[in-house]
């Protein structure tokens, strides 16, 4: 289980990264924390010509609040976000979610942006971004259209598939800051602690509307807005069926649908302890 040969580049600036991506495109892979990519390379599920290690780009590692958004750079590790003292205040959903993301050891190197770029349908961070209505910043080498901001709803397009073009780098992810009159809830069932979710549900409970998101069921995180005056069980049933759940070795489709309904009911009706 060893990677195939590749060229390795460790650029020191964003511009260098973007140039390499422009030159190499889909034959390149961006290496940040490596917690997904390296496993894929070791198993030779990908044999890229070039691996671009962005670890040396100094200005890509940050946690900042800008314009009511929590902005996280491409080199920021999951452990750094979890340890950020203001996390619970500004992003209570992420404070609940982060301990579910992998393990202590993988969070130490895995990046927030890397998990979102990988777009595993069972991963917690893409679900959080989708349910909070966040966005990602994609940059490419272009004199005019070098940067675009893509909402989560457009970014996640399917199994491991996103709106990112091969010459683009996801430089930043932005989560809307918590609002005082909103409640943020999360629940997950996995085979073991730290495993990918069989079903993960995240909810933003607003005064008039609930935003409910499901991970681990469809081929991407899926979000549904539920006005608070609707009958939750009817809404949850529609949501459960709409996800197109499938059976695999670890859980049946019916199980996944039922958990969306029943855990969803709990999540919407009981305040998080």
């Amino acid at each position: 289980m060893k990677p195939a040969a590749f060229d390795y580049a460790r650029p020191e600036s964003r511009g260098e990264v973007l140039k390499l991506l422009a030159d190499t495109g889909s034959d390149a892979r961006v290496l940040a924390g490596g917690q997904s990519l390296m496993a894929v390379l070791n198993m030779r599920l990908a044999e890229p010509a070039l691996v671009i290690d962005i670890g040396g780009v100094a200005d890509l590692g940050y946690i900042e609040i800008r314009d009511d958004r929590l902005c996280i750079g491409a080199n920021t590790r999951q452990a750094e976000l979890l340890a950020w003292p203001e996390l619970a205040e500004h992003a209570p959903l992420l404070a609940r979610v982060m301990p579910w993301v992998g393990h202590f050891q993988t969070r130490n190197r895995g990046t927030v942006c890397g998990s979102i770029t990988h777009a595993d349908p069972s991963a917690e961070l893409p679900l959080s971004l989708a349910v909070l209505g966040g966005e990602v910043v994609l940059e490419r080498r272009h004199w005019r259209r070098g940067r675009r901001v893509v909402p989560a709803a457009e970014f996640f397009q399917g199994l491991l598939t996103t709106a990112r073009e091969p010459d683009e780098l996801l430089t930043e992810v932005r989560f809307p800051l918590a609002r005082a009159d909103h409640d943020y809830r999360f629940t997950e069932v996995a085979m073991r602690h730290g495993d990918f979710a069989l079903v993960a549900l995240a909810a933003v409970i607003g005064p008039d509307e609930i935003v409910l998101g499901a991970g681990g069921v469809a081929d991407r995180p899926v979000v549904r807005r539920i006005p608070r005056d609707r009958d939750f069980d009817t809404e949850l049933n529609i949501f459960a069926w709409s996800l197109g759940a499938e059976s695999d070795a670890h859980a049946s489709a019916a199980y996944r649908r039922q958990l969306v309904r029943e855990l969803g009911h709990k999540l919407l009706t009981q305040a998080t302890p």
């Binding site: 460790r10 290496l31 917690q35 390296m38 290690d53 393990h103 130490n108």
Partner: peptide, 25 residues
């Protein structure tokens, strides 16, 4: 592939899977 943890070392003091890092990193 980063699951079992046997290869965990500390990189600049931080526990990390050595199988999920390149030597050149």
């Amino acid at each position: 592939h980063g699951v079992c943890g046997a290869c965990t070392v500390r990189v600049d003091g931080v526990a990390s899977r050595a199988c999920l890092m390149l030597a050149v990193q």
